[in-house]
Design a protein around this nucleic acid. Structure first.
Lengths: 195, 195, 195, 195
DNA sequence: TATGAATGAGATTTCATTCAT
DNA sequence: GATGAATGAAATCTCATTCAT
C-alpha cells in the first residue's frame, strides 16, 4: 500500500526534476524511469502516458506551490503583512524549486484541452486567492480601491518576474531577497491609499 | 534576390503561426512548409534545422515586437506618456499576434545554449529599454526614485499578465483596453512621486 | 487436486473463448486470466508460455471435436448412416462452438515446429477416421471405389465450408441443417455406386 | 512515376512472401523492408499501417488468384471443361504461390471490421463465380440440378483441401495433379446427371 | 499455490533531414 | 534554387514473463 504511493511519488519527483531541466520533447520516459530508479514499464503502471505524467506533475507541483502560499497568509496577519509573507514564500519556493517552478508557472500550452483547462483553472485559483487578499486589504482600509482581478494578475505577472531573476540572472540568495522586497514595495505603493 | 527574401519571409510567417498554435514537438517541418506554400526541402535552404528556424522566428518576432514598442515611445512625449504609449502598443501587438506573442514572450527554454542566451539577451534589451524610460521619468521628476532594473522587470511581468488575459480569458477588445489602462494606473501609482 | 484440474480447465475454456474471438497477437494473457477468474501468474503455473497454452487448447479442442465425431459413428450403423451422423455431429459442434471451431479447424501456422507437427497429426487423425469410414462403405458396397485419402480430404474441406457458413453467413440453425443435408447429398452422390 | 508503382510493388511482393512464411505477429515491418530493399519508413509512405499493408496483400493476392481462375474459364468451353480448367488453374496457382495462397485462402480474422468485410466480400466473389459456372452447366444439362450456393462452397472447401496437400504433405507436382484430377472427378460425380 | 506489481525487450510508427532530380 | 521521396534513428508504449509475498 505504502509502497505504491512511495513508488508513484518517486516517479513524480523524478519527472518534476527532469521536465524542469529540459523541454518536454527532450525528456525520454526512460530518463525519468532511470532517475526514479524504476523500470520503464513501471511508469505506465501509474500514468497512462507521458502526457498524463506531465499533467500530473503540473497539478502536483502547483498544489504544493499554492498550498505554500496559502499557508504563508496566516489569518491573524494584516493584509499587508499577508502580502509580504506571500511574496516571501513565493520567492523561497521558486528559489528552492527553480526547475520545477518554471514548468509550474509557465507550462507548455498542451495539445490536450484537458491540460489546457487544468492550467487555466490553476491560474484562476491563484488569482482568486490574491483577489481575496486584496479585497481584505481594501475592506480594512489598508489598500486603496482597485480592480482586484486586474491587480491580482499584475501580482502574478510580477511573481513570474522573480522567476526570471532566479532562472536567468542566477542571482545570489540575498540579492534575490532585496529584489523581492523592492517588488513588494512597488506593489504596495501601487496599492497605497492615496493621501 | 527579392524572391528569396520573399520566400524566406513566407516561411518565417508560417512558422510563427504554427509554432504559436502548438508546442514545438507537435510542429512538423512539413506543416510549416505546407502553410508557407513551399516544399519541405526548401525550408532547409534557408534554415539549417528546425531548431534554428525556431530561433529565427523568436528573434524576428521579438524584433518586430520590440521595434513597435520603441516606435511608440516618441521622443517628444513625457516619460509618463511614453509609458502609456508603450502599454498601448504592447496591448495592440499581443492582440493582433496572440499566438506569436506567446512564444515570443514565454518561449521554451532550449537545449541549445545559444537559444537560451539569445532569449536572455532579448529580455535584457527589453529591460534596458524600460529602464531608460524609467530613468528619464525619474530625472524629469515624473517618477519617484526606484530601482529601475527591478521595476522594469515588474513591468515586463505585468505585460505577460496582459498576454494571459488575451490568451485565456479571450476578452473583448474594449475590455482589454480597460484592463490595460488599469494596469498602467497601477504601475504609475507604484511610480508616483510621493506627496 | 481436483481444484487444480478445475482451475486448469477454467483457464483452457477461457483461452478457447478468447483465442476464438480474435487473433493470437491480440490476445493478452491478462485477458484470459481475467475471463478465467484467476491471476495472471496462475496461468504460468499450468502452462509454460502463451504459445504452449495456445497449443494446449488446440489439442484439447480438437480432441473434444474428434471424439464427438467418433462417438457419432455408432458401429452398428451402415457407412452411409455413419457419414450422415458425422456430418450432423460436425454441424452441431461448430454451431455450438463457432469461435473455438475456427481456431481448431484453421489454426495459425505456428513458429514452433512442434505446433505445426501437432496440427498435421491432427489433420491426419481426422483423415484416417474418415478414410476408415469410406473404406468400410466401399467394402460394404455402399460406396463406389475411390481414393479414400483424397475423398477424406475433400470431406474435410467440405466441413470447413460449413464453418464458413456459420461464421460469416450467420445463418439460422434450420437453414444450416438444410445446407448440411445438401452437402451430404453432394458427397453421397460423389460416392454413389454408378449404375 | 513508374518507380513509385515499382517500389510499392516490391513492398507488396516482399510482404506477401513474408506474411506467407510466418504468422502476422511474427512479421516485423523491418523484415519486409529488408526483403523489399527499402527503408523501414518507406513502407509507411505507401501503407498507413502494418494492418493496412496486410489487408492490401490479401486484396492484391486474391485478385491475382481470382483473375487467374476467371481467365481459365474460357467462354468457348463447356461447363465441365471450365470446371476442369479452373481446378487446374487453382492447383497451379497454389503450387506456385504456396505461401501466399495460405494467407489468401485462410487469412486471419482481423480486428478491423473492414478487413473482415473485405474477406467476406472476396469469398462471395469467388462463390458467385463458381455458382455461375454451375448454373451454366445445369442449364446446358451437363450437371444435375443442385443448390448452386451450396455446391459452390463445397468446391471452395475442396480447393482448400488441395492447399493442405501442398502445404503439409509437400507432395510432388505430378502426384498433386493426380489428386486434383481425383477431386475433380469426385465433384463431377456429385454433379453428374443421374441416370 | 496464487498473485499481480515490476520489468525491459522489442515493435510500430514518426519525422527531421538528405539528396537526386 | 526547389522539391519531396526515401530514410533510419529514436521514442512511446505493450505485454509476456518473473518472482517476492
Amino acid at each position: 500500500m505504502q509502497e505504491i504511493g512511495e513508488k508513484k511519488g518517486r516517479i513524480l519527483v523524478a519527472a518534476m526534476d527532469i521536465f524542469g531541466e529540459r523541454p518536454y520533447d527532450q525528456v525520454k520516459i526512460e530518463d525519468i524511469a532511470e532517475r526514479a530508479g524504476v523500470g520503464k514499464g513501471t511508469i505506465y503502471e501509474y500514468f497512462v502516458s507521458k502526457e498524463e505524467l506531465f499533467a500530473a506533475i503540473l497539478e502536483a507541483g502547483f498544489n504544493e506551490y499554492f498550498m505554500a502560499l496559502v499557508a504563508a497568509a496566516v489569518p491573524s496577519l494584516s493584509a499587508t503583512a499577508k502580502l509580504q509573507a506571500v511574496f516571501g514564500r513565493h520567492l523561497s519556493f521558486i528559489s528552492q524549486h527553480a526547475a520545477a517552478a518554471r514548468i509550474i508557472l509557465s507550462e507548455r500550452p498542451a495539445s490536450r484541452s484537458e491540460i489546457h483547462e487544468a492550467m487555466v483553472n490553476r491560474y484562476m485559483r491563484l488569482g482568486r486567492f490574491l483577489e481575496e487578499l486584496l479585497q481584505e486589504g481594501m475592506t480594512a482600509g489598508e489598500f486603496r480601491p482597485v480592480d482586484t482581478a486586474i491587480v491580482a494578475q499584475a501580482i502574478i505577472g510580477i511573481f513570474s518576474t522573480l522567476l526570471v531573476f532566479v532562472l536567468f540572472a542566477e542571482q545570489a540568495a540575498d540579492a534575490m531577497e532585496k529584489n523581492a522586497e523592492k517588488l513588494l514595495d512597488f506593489c504596495l505603493l501601487g496599492l497605497a491609499v492615496g493621501d
